[in-house]
Design a protein around this nucleic acid. Structure first.
Lengths: 346, 346
DNA sequence: AGGCAAATTTAAAACGTTTTGAATAGTGTT
DNA sequence: AACACTATTCAAAACGTTTTAAATTTGCCT
């Protein structure tokens, strides 16, 4: 293995100069820098990361803890995230150390990982409102970046989408199409994103003077979408439009609508939020699904770079990105069916 | 952070003694060792892994590359493996660095990972016959452990199951039950395990003087099991027993048998090899599935420990384990139906 | 008490890098 | 030719550990 010393001996230079030459310090003469670069290339020099880390006090590793479900499966997006994160982190000379969490206590695996290891920081995902992991890591001063959002004005880096606008845009679109009875089939409200979308849905419905009583919550499963939609449609005043928290739920909802002998969008408009799950593509729906869209995979690179930037000293308040979701109108939404007499407020 | 130096100053000892005391060297006096241990506990000492690695020349990280399918999903067992591996590796103070492989060239991701990083070794899984990754890593002297088997007499650590006995045991069981027409619905023969099971199936059938022409190969999918079984059963001389490469395939095969109006095991016996996939449990079949069994999860700890042992100098030939699969007889296998006239060799 | 071996401890080197403070080389001015 | 800069390079310390070789202490025997 070529080392700085070897390059120095080769050229009659000190290690200090060689180090600075390669790291782009301004005080080294250009001709020297070129000689050093040439020698480094020729000898196949690669900096010893372990030595770098010893002196800089950093480990070059960040942690992420995957929560798995009892059936040992994980989120559909997990591999996409993993791919994107490792790729982006490797650009910054950073490794991703993974652990799997089966514990009840959400902070325990983080605690264990900190004890065992020299991790520079964490990537946190799938936050719940007032996430205990956030306070845990903040108390100990461990840097992290949160995927999603938890508090309104956090003092830590976050990257997420504006879940309020997801609901607001959806409601506005449907209201403008003349829908009055708009249902929401939400995800688990224990998740922060669902919590925010619910609050925004209620607020938007109120803004438009609409009843906000058609709300269902549960897991992001096809079967949940199916059963909840079926239930909504069999009520005395069924919805004419359904907003689904995910394309998976939308798939179930559309199946329920068809089973009731109704059509999309003739009788019921359907839309969803689209995280771009590889298995359930909104474009492949029949008719193609109208969505608010913010692909999970777009979050990988920003998350990685924000965390490394934060480790390098960029203050948290410069590292807070909230993306607005795109609104993509396709065939699954249309004008509300002709209003019935009993529709309006009495 | 407490360091060796700090503990030494606290007790009036040199760092060398403190180091040796904590690492269990025999030449340090017991009373001293206890004083050091007490001080280390009291000060919350944790060895700086980066410093340890600098001096030992090891990084304390091993790599594993996950191959994902185009739909961004991975093997069903992946999370189970991940859980088991990280747990076992952490016992040996080793981290698992994960990368995701989407490349065509199987060695490219390994090359990239080696360039970028200071990895001590690799865990290789899902080998193909004459796996190019094996020769690649061997050429460069990178230690690794292979999950599964590739060659008959490898000179590297391996942990796998005896796929020959999987087929032999299955064929013997069915032959002893009087079956003459035994089919094999195999996995992709590109995988080493399927290749071995096929070879052993053919050999075993020959040993029993049976025709070995009822062989199908393909992906480990329910739909593959279904279509292949359906096809086999509609032949002129359908099988009376089907050996499936996995429980997933068996699920499809059993569905096909029922769709043909046949019963298990009355008309057709079904058995499979069981890697203990969490989603498809042999015990939950109706009737419960007879299997050769070797849970994937049992491989995690051995793989981890074998790799670390190998890194610590244990020679490869002491690190080669081939487990025999258990044969678990349940309700899906039974005596062959009454033989027809045309059965025997003419 | 003196001597010798064994038991225990120590100082120092090593790993490869970054960084501090000092030294040298180069340039232009008087 | 001496001076004052600035530009460039260097030696050495530091990070925290392991390990080698040497030094010290201890115990035992005469």
């Amino acid at each position: 293995m070529a080392t700085l010393k070897k390059i120095g001996e080769e050229l009659g230079l000190s290690v200090a100069t060689v180090s600075r030459a390669l790291n782009g310090f301004p005080e080294v003469k250009e001709t020297t820098r070129n000689r050093v670069r040439e020698a480094a290339d020729r000898l196949g020099y690669r900096p010893n990361r372990v030595a770098q880390r010893l002196v800089t006090g950093r480990s070059g590793m960040v942690g992420m803890i995957v929560k798995i479900k009892p059936d040992m499966s994980a989120d559909q997006t997990f591999f996409e995230m993993l791919t994107g994160l490792t790729a982006a982190l490797s650009e910054r000379e950073t490794d991703l150390v993974l652990a799997v969490d089966q514990a009840e206590d959400p902070v325990l695996p983080y605690q264990r990982m900190l004890e065992r290891d020299v991790l520079d920081g964490f990537i946190l995902n799938a936050p719940v409102p007032d996430d205990p992991r956030v306070s845990f890591l903040q108390e100990r001063g461990i840097p992290f970046v949160l995927h999603g959002q938890d508090r309104a004005c956090p003092n830590y880096p976050t990257f997420g989408i504006d879940n309020f606008s997801v609901s607001t845009d959806s409601v506005r679109l449907l209201a403008q199409l003349g829908h009055r009875r708009i249902a929401l089939i939400n995800g688990e409200v224990s998740a922060a994103f669902a919590h925010d979308r619910l609050a925004a849905f209620e607020a938007a419905m109120e803004d438009f003077g609409l009843n906000k009583d058609l709300i269902r919550t549960g897991a992001s499963l096809e079967s949940h979408g199916y059963s909840q939609a079926l239930d909504l449609l069999s009520a005395a005043t069924p919805p004419t439009a359904i907003i689904c928290a995910s394309t998976v739920i939308a798939a179930g909802a559309m199946r329920a609508i068809r089973d009731r002998g109704l059509s999309v969008p003739g009788d019921v408009s359907v839309m969803a939020h689209d995280d771009a799950l590889p298995q359930t593509r909104a474009i492949n729906f029949e008719p193609a699904l109208t969505v608010t869209r913010a692909p999970m995979r777009d979050a990988c690179a920003p998350l990685a770079h924000m965390l490394v930037d934060h480790l390098n000293g960029t203050p948290a308040h410069e590292l807070q990105v909230t993306l607005k979701a795109d609104l993509i109108i396709r065939g699954s939404t249309g004008p509300a069916p002709k209003p019935e007499i009993s529709d309006g407020p009495r």
